[in-house]
Computed example of a mutant assay.
Amino acid sequence: MVAVRRIVVGVHGSLGSLQALRWAAEEARARQVPLTAVIAWVPPGGDLAERGHPSPYLRRIWNDAARERLMDAFEAGLGGLPADVRVEPCVARGETGPVLVDIAEQPGDLLVIGTGRRAPLGRALRKSVGRYCLAHARCPVLAVPPSALMDEMAHGFRPWALRGRHVSVPDIPDMPES
């Protein structure tokens, strides 16, 4: 069994990825290993559209926007970059699954990904990063399940009556006329 020498975590700002980031930071702290936080980006319209009309200026803007989303995820998930963990931020161009698998390819890497419920339409339109990583990774992959709160939020807003609870509005006394 190879010891874990680095933890690689996919981050993009969703609740599932923030949960994975928190878990990965705790694990990196406990094992005293570096944490490589990865965010992948693809140009709007996809690579094919961008390659037809390349723009170094726009590539820089998209890369900077991805770096900002990564830092925002640290702020939202951990309150900022942890002082007691060596963090190696990584902004990479490409589809998320292949980028994560390519970065987490060294012996001793542990790839951490977030999971969560996806709506049926989302499952039909987008590939599952988790499935891709589990099928193609050359290192151990840890899929962090959503927290109980995230699981409750995934069900969306439902009226109280549908939850089996009833809210009654107290009678409001009549206001005296002046």
Rank of each mutant, 00 (worst) to 15 (best):
D171R: 12
D64R: 14
I61C: 09
D174C: 06
D174W: 02
L78M: 11
V8C: 00
S128I: 09
Q106L: 13
M153G: 00
G80R: 12
P82G: 07
S178A: 12
R29Y: 08
A3E: 13
E95Y: 10
S168N: 07
L48Y: 12
L58F: 15
G114V: 07
F74A: 12
I39W: 02
T36K: 03
A24C: 09
I172E: 09
P56R: 02
F157W: 15
M150E: 14
P44K: 01
R138S: 13
R163S: 12
W160C: 06
A143C: 10
D171G: 09
L48S: 13
L81T: 06
R29H: 13
G45K: 07
G122L: 14
G46C: 09
R29L: 06
V9T: 01
D109G: 02
R59Y: 08
D174V: 10
A161M: 05
A3N: 03
A83E: 15
H53G: 03
A3R: 03
A104S: 09
T115E: 13
M150P: 00
E95Q: 15
L81E: 12
V38R: 00
A154G: 15
T36E: 10
V99P: 00
G156Y: 06
V129Q: 03
G77T: 09
R51H: 12
V2K: 01
G13A: 05
P170N: 01
R51I: 12
E26S: 13
L125S: 07
E26F: 01
L35K: 00
P82Y: 01
R6N: 03
R69V: 09
A65P: 10
W23D: 04
F157G: 03
H53R: 13
A28C: 08
G13N: 07
E50R: 11
G46D: 09
P82A: 08
E27M: 10
P176T: 04
T96W: 01
L125Y: 11
P107I: 05
A154T: 03
A92Y: 03
